[in-house]
Amino acid sequence: MAFETPKINYSGSIREITLGDGPKSVTVGGETALPFYLFEGDMPRKPKIAMEIQDTPPLDWPADALKPFGDAVNNPVSWAKKCVDTYEAKIICLQLESTDPNGLDRSAEEAAKIVREVANAVDVPLIVWGTANHEKDTEVLRKISEICPDKKLILGPVEEGDYKKIAAQAMAYKHTIIASSPIDINLAKQLNILLGNLGVPANEIIMDPTVSSIGYGIEYAYSVIERIRLAALTQQDERLQYPIICNIGREAWKTKEAKIPETESPELGNTEKRAIMIEAMSAAILLIAGADILVMRHPESMRLVGELMAELG
């Protein structure tokens, strides 16, 4: 008798959500099985990679992460264009580093102006990521919602501490929301319920379960994503059936091991390749847990993860 793979019972599916609008919009989600379990379910589209840029020249990115972009890092518009034109980015994620109250503390108006310029310059979906400071993000993300009424942005992180004002404004202007919670399935669900109660349409929510890189707690992120996915697919938990975004690039590149020079620790091998591998491997592990969107930094790690997905599907 031929052996047959024991099946598990899937009763739910992940919502399909469209990021951005117009001809370059990108749809994510739609899975009816665990990631890449193609022998027993559908993954109508591969997870997507969003390319990370910053609104101010990065001070803490290692040279290896800056190299692919040259002078473009000095101007968010040129940087975004370079990602789209040279590296064929299908989504851009603009990190609003400059608004950090512990850093440059730029005003909401200034931040919004930059977002507007980037939004004008590229036609791919634009994710805008704040600094997770509740007061500041409220100010900044509200202003951005308002200034880009014609462009369907994806705004985050929206947390339990600041969701009301940010989500209300985003909803008014039809932007998509990234619901962010600290690696806890119940908190993630709770926030999605709150957003639903506020009236945010179910097709405008992406979940951010919070991630960290390999060596710095990725196992927590791995398991919480896996649990969220299982609850969504096998227990039909509607409040968890949203696509998942992982802002992993910055976590990988801030690790010490992404920077140690080979001359200092030859046993760690080539520094640039190692950093690329830390980013790509962190992304790969989150992919197999259930990520639908990966925010990544280096074109080479993006390429590797892209090829990996092609081989898996």
């Binding site: 707690g217 196992e219 791995y222 046993e267 091998g269 080539n270 190692r274 591998m277 592990i285």
Partner: peptide
């Protein structure tokens, strides 16, 4: 085996096999 790929793999393995 090369440091740049082996080290991340060993770390990833350790992470996934820690007792949650």
């Amino acid at each position: 085996f090369r440091g740049e790929t082996l080290f991340p793999l060993l770390v990833a393995r350790m992470n996934l096999y820690t007792d949650p």
